[in-house]
Structure formats: C-alpha cells, structure tokens
C-alpha cells in the first residue's frame, strides 16, 4: 500500500536503519488489524446479546450506556481486573499457551482479507490455502486447552471439537476450491476482481455456498454445531477451567473467527467489497455484518445436533455434496 511505502521511505531517509524501517509498516498494519478485531469483537458481543434478547422478547443489556452499548467495555474491564487463576491440577504451560495459540492464527488470517481494492494487509497469491491452514490451527488450541485443564468435561469438549473440526475441514475446503476454480486464482483480491467482471458466485455456487455455510458453522463451533461447549451437556466444554483474561482470549478467538468466516463468505460468494455507490469498505462491512447476523439468527433458533449426527452429516452429507459441486463446477469451467 502506498501509505506504508511512503512511511517506509520516509523512515529510511530520516536515517533509521533499514531493518528497523522494514519492521515498521507490518507492525503498524497488524496494530490496525488488531484494533479492528478487538473493537469489532466487542461490538459483536454486544450485538449478539442484543440480537438474542430481541429474538427472545427481552431487551438484552440496557444499563451501561444507551441501550447497553458499552456493556462489552464493562465486561472487558471486569475480565481484566479478575484474579488470574491457574487451577492447581492443570498442565501449566499448555494451559497458559492454549489461548494464545487460539488467538494468534485467528488474528493472522485477517492479513489476507481484502477490505477494499487497496485496503489489504498482504495480497497473498495463495490466500485461500493460507486461510485453510490457519483456521485449522484452532483445533490444536482446543485440544491443548481441553487436555491441559485436567477436567473430564474439558477433555470431552476438546475431543468433540477436534473430531468436528477435522471432519468439517474437508467439505469446507472443497467448497472453497470450487470458487477458486471459477475465479482461476487463490488470491482473494483476484477472486473479488473476477466477480466484479462477471457476477457474484452465489449465482452459480448455491450448493457450494450451502456446504460452506454449514461447514463454517461447525468450524466456528456455532449452534447448531456448538457441541464442544454445549452448556447443557458439557458445562462449558474445553474452556470450563478458564477464567479472566485467558477465558476472554478464547472468547475473543471465537468472535474473531466469526468475523473471518463472514468476511470469507462475502468475499468468495457475494463479491467482497464490490458494490455500487457506497465506498468499498462500507459494502464489505455490510456484507460481513449480514452474515454475522445470519449466524446469530441460526444460533438462537435451532436446537443442538448430536455428536454422532454431526459426524454423519459431515461425512455422509456435506462431503459428497461438496464433491458433486466441485465436479459440476469443473465441467462448467471447462465449457465456459
């Protein structure tokens, strides 16, 4: 991006050593992204509670600020000021590391997400592979959290989410591959560009989108697939023993992943930042928030699926569907 090149050049001219100058733009970029994620997550947590409330004929948070808008801020302050508890039976290092391992990839994914024509931290030409690789990282953190907690409920939750994430990763990636086939590129920026020149891929990929949506819900541990933290069954799943900031980090990861999903869904199937009249960033955010709302809507409507039914749906339902979709897309690309 031009601004960052200018910043880099300016620093070099001012006599800053080259290695330091090289370090500055990425640091600034990641700080901006981090801020974006944190602010959005805080907003999302408030939004989730409001959406849930209004769907259930409640008000949601109302006391802190107008319509409880700074409720999340209050929560953050509460969580920060809480005692930092590491239960005595846990595997200390793994327990401490797990939230960080969870959050880092969720954060890194935002690097390749195009917010606008030039608003992207790094336009990787293998962005889709990058995303698939990073998002599957979360399994490790869940397993770390569940195992190190030394709690049976945590362990069960971790086992569930591992099985779930691994089996849903496959249809998810295959449904994404179909889009890459259509666009002829793995770069998100080019996929958006390809859609601008033709049409939104949802028109030719309705099945692919459905598979993507379902698999993503499972990847996100969202209802009806929120088995790993099924409150009614597993108390709180893998994060049962977590509290304070560590818990907040796990929670944050969840919402960061939610934004990632919404961003990818709108980029791959709904033309990303492209749209008339309004600036690209606004279009992008509108689409992202639409998908986030969709996920919340689903969450507060459906009951939870059972673990064996989840596996069945993944392997017997989504995987064949995604393969069929891929095959048809291949034929379509050939005769296009």
């Amino acid at each position: 991006m031009d601004m960052f090149t200018a910043m880099h050049n300016g620093l070099v001219q001012m006599g800053v050593p080259l290695w330091l100058a090289n370090l500055v733009p990425p640091l600034v970029k990641s700080l901006i992204l981090l801020l974006f994620i944190l602010l959005n997550c805080m907003f999302l947590i408030w939004m989730e509670r409001k959406v849930a409330g209004h769907m259930q004929r409640r008000m949601g948070p109302m006391r802190t600020g107008p319509h409880g808008i700074i409720q999340s801020l209050a929560d953050v302050i509460k969580l920060i000021s809480k005692e930092d508890i590491i239960p005595s039976g846990v595997d200390r290092w793994v327990f401490v590391l797990a939230p960080i391992v969870a959050f880092a990839p969720a954060f890194a994914v935002f690097m390749v997400i195009p917010f606008g024509p030039t608003l992207i931290a790094q336009d990787l030409n293998i962005a889709l592979i990058f995303i698939a690789a990073l998002t599957s990282f979360v399994v490790i953190s869940f397993l770390m959290a569940g195992w190190s907690s030394n709690n049976k409920w945590s362990l069960l939750g971790a086992m569930r989410s591992t099985a779930q994430l691994i089996s849903y990763e496959v249809p998810l990636v295959i449904s994404v591959v179909a889009v890459a086939l259509l666009a002829g590129s793995l770069s998100l920026q080019e996929i958006v560009e390809a859609q601008r020149q033709s049409f939104w891929y949802i028109l030719v990929q309705p099945l692919g989108f459905l598979v993507f949506l379902t698999a993503s819900l499972a990847e996100l541990n969202r209802s009806p697939f929120d088995l790993s933290e099924a409150e009614q069954e597993l108390v709180a799943g893998y994060n049962t023993e977590y509290s304070g900031m560590r818990w907040a980090l796990l929670y944050l990861t969840e919402y960061a992943n939610l934004i990632t999903f919404a961003a990818i869904a709108s980029t791959l199937f709904f033309g990303g930042w492209s749209g008339p009249v309004l600036p690209p960033v606004v279009w992008f955010l509108i689409k992202v928030y639409f998908f986030i709302f969709l996920v919340m809507w689903i969450r507060w409507t459906l009951p939870r699926i059972r673990v064996d039914q989840l596996m069945e749906l993944g392997w017997k339902g989504l995987l064949p569907l995604s393969l069929v979709n891929l095959a048809f897309t291949g034929v379509y690309v050939l005769i296009r």
């Binding site: 849930a52 259930q56 004929r57 409640r58 009806p224 099924a230 009614q232 009951p303």
Partner: peptide, 11 residues
C-alpha cells in the same frame, strides 16, 4: 433448552 434451543424457553 436441554436440547440447545434457548429461544423456546423464553417463549
């Protein structure tokens, strides 16, 4: 709610 559908509970 035991089955994970919280909204029915409040209705």
């Amino acid at each position: 709610m035991d089955l994970g559908a919280t909204t029915a509970f409040l209705y």
